[in-house]
């Protein structure tokens, strides 16, 4: 099982990942033509610039994902093997139940198309676009052993401690 791990102290909130994500999810997958597409390509990763530190945030592909439980049309489902939460655009009706329940606020809406959008871990790429684009190597895609879940949760725990 592979996870995107983040080193908070390396993030300088440059938003390279946001740009790379939007381009990867555009029709042309080229920055210069993507800019002129309608509807404009939408990123599924967000950068939060805080007072003390910054961090990139995209779908955590949660176990027991709240978005999957909230989905009223069967568009969201979790692959038991990979652990990834998948979204089928042609089943989505944009009802926003998942947006209402995602505790990380990482589902976004394509208002024109009336669907939600989320991180798909870039199925066409070996390394997701956000990870590949990061100039400070704040993000990395790493194999995380299933039996050592602590490591998987390191980022989240770190995140949670900063929260409270």
């Amino acid at each position: 099982m592979k996870e995107i791990l983040i080193q908070l102290e390396h993030c300088v909130a440059c938003k390279s990942c946001v740009l790379a994500c939007a381009v990867e999810h555009s029709e042309s997958k080229e920055l210069f033509s993507a800019i002129f597409e309608t509807p404009p390509p939408v990123a599924r990763i967000f950068v939060e610039a805080g007072e003390e530190f910054n961090f990139p945030l995209q779908c955590r592909h949660c176990e027991e994902a709240k978005c999957v439980k909230a989905c009223i049309s069967g568009a969201l489902w979790q692959d038991k093997e990979s652990g990834l939460v998948h979204h089928e655009k042609d089943k989505c009706i944009g009802c926003l139940m998942c947006v209402m329940l995602c505790p990380f606020g990482v589902l976004t809406q394509a208002r024109e198309e009336k669907v939600v959008l989320k991180c798909d871990r870039c199925p066409d790429l070996d390394i997701p676009a956000c990870v590949a684009s990061c100039p400070t190597k704040a993000m990395s895609l790493e194999e995380v052993p299933v039996h050592a879940r602590e490591k998987r949760k390191e980022y989240l725990t770190n995140f949670k401690e900063q929260w409270s």
Partner: peptide
């Protein structure tokens, strides 16, 4: 615009005390 609505739902469910900031 509603992307972060889920964070608010989670704040209600967890009844977390909000920092002044």
């Amino acid at each position: 615009e509603n992307r972060k609505a889920g964070i608010l739902t989670n704040l209600i469910m967890s009844q977390q005390l909000l920092s002044p900031y």
